[in-house]
Each structure stands twice: as structure tokens, then as C-alpha cells.
Computed example of a mutant assay.
Amino acid sequence: MSGDTDLIKLYSGRILELAADIPHHGRLSAPGATVKKRSPLCGSTVTVDLNLANGTVSAFGQDVKACALGQAAASVVGGAILGTTPDQIVQARDDLRAMLKDDGPTPSAPFDGLEVLRPAVAFKNRHASILLTLDAASEAVAQLVQTQSA
């Protein structure tokens, strides 16, 4: 029964609030890059559309079909990503992965809202879904940086 109780605690009110209100939910009409990521374990998918201008994210859209934890992560990322640099996005992804897998520190601002997902550390089968949005955004900015420097 303890496992059931832990799972119930994991889906806190704050996580459910975030999951219900995802910023920039929807696709961009003219994205510079589009990346779709899928978690093979649970089937969650996230498609990210992204534009860069002057070295920062100028437009962001996301189509999220994920569990509440993946939706909550997408909500935090969607609320924080505009105006960030490619390096900040990659660092946030790496920090989130370390937080989940190694109980590392919370990603730094503006992605520090991902702290709400710290209780998921114990639920390894949820990690991939939580990482989807930042994985997709990291790949999208890498594509755009490569295109812009070519």
C-alpha cells in the first residue's frame, strides 16, 4: 500500500494545476525547427516548435500528449522558455536529468519551477515523460544554431 500512497502524493495539487494549464500549448504557424519526441515506455509524446531571434527563443509552441507529470514539466518549460538561450535550455535539460536520475540540484532559473517534479525521482518509469519537452527543445535549438552558423 505504501507504493500507492507515494504515487498519490506524487500527483500533488500543484502538479495537477500545472498539467491543466500548459503555456504555449499549440503549434506555431511558421516554426524555425520542429522536433517530436516520444517516450517508448509510456507512449507520451511532445512536439515542440521553436524560433530563435538574436540568440534567444522568440517563439515557442508545443503539442503535449503526456501523463500529468509530462504535462507539468511542459507547463513549467512553456512558462519559462521565451527569452532563453540555447545554452540555458540544454543546461536545464541536463540539470533536470541529473535531478531525476541522481537526485542532483534543481535546474537554475528560469527553469527552477521544475523543482515541483522532484518527488518523481523515485519513479524511474516517469523520467522519460518528464524530460520530453526539454529534450525536444534542446534538439530544436541545436538544429537552429547549426542552420544559422552554416
Rank of each mutant, 00 (worst) to 15 (best):
F123A: 03
S39Q: 03
K65V: 15
A137I: 02
T85K: 02
D94A: 10
K37L: 04
G61N: 02
D135E: 07
S58Y: 06
S129L: 07
T84F: 08
T5E: 12
P40Q: 10
R97A: 12
G61F: 00
A74K: 05
S12T: 04
D6T: 13
S58P: 03
D94Y: 06
K124M: 11
P119A: 03
I81S: 04
K37F: 15
A68T: 12
I22Q: 02
Q148M: 14
K65G: 12
R97G: 13
N125I: 13
A53Y: 06
G43K: 10
A150H: 11
S58F: 12
L131I: 09
I22A: 05
G113V: 04
I130K: 03
P31T: 04
V121F: 11
G78P: 10
I15K: 04
S149H: 14
I81Y: 00
D21Y: 01
P105A: 08
L144C: 02
E17Q: 12
T34W: 03
I89C: 01
D21V: 14
A30K: 13
P119I: 05
D94R: 13
A66N: 08
V64I: 12
K37Q: 03
L134I: 10
S138F: 01
T47D: 03
R126N: 11
P86D: 00
L82Y: 10
L16S: 13
I81R: 00
A68P: 15
G26K: 02
L100V: 07
H25M: 11
D4R: 14
N51W: 10
A73S: 11
A98M: 04
Q62E: 09
G78W: 00
F111N: 09
K101T: 15
S138P: 02
L134P: 03
M99C: 11
I8R: 11
A66V: 15
V121N: 07
L114K: 01
A92W: 00
V116Y: 15
D94V: 01
K124L: 14
P31Y: 02
V48L: 05
A136Y: 04
P40G: 03
A109P: 09
A30D: 13
V48G: 00
L131M: 10
T85C: 08
K124Q: 11
S58W: 08
E17L: 07
D102G: 14
I81A: 01
A142C: 10
L132F: 04
P107R: 07
S29L: 07
L16R: 15
G55R: 04
D95E: 12
A59M: 06
D4T: 13
A98Q: 12
C67K: 12
S149Y: 11
Q62D: 10
D135S: 02
G32K: 01
G83P: 03
V90D: 09
T133H: 03
Q71C: 05
G55N: 10
M1V: 14
L131S: 05
D112W: 12
V35T: 01
L16H: 13
S44L: 06
H25K: 13
T56I: 11
G55Q: 06
T106W: 12
D21H: 04
Q62A: 08
P40V: 15
V48F: 01
P23T: 12
D87F: 13
A136P: 07
V77K: 05
T34Y: 04
A137G: 02
P110S: 09
Q91E: 13
T133M: 04
S12L: 05
L134Q: 05
A73Y: 00
S129Q: 08
G26R: 04
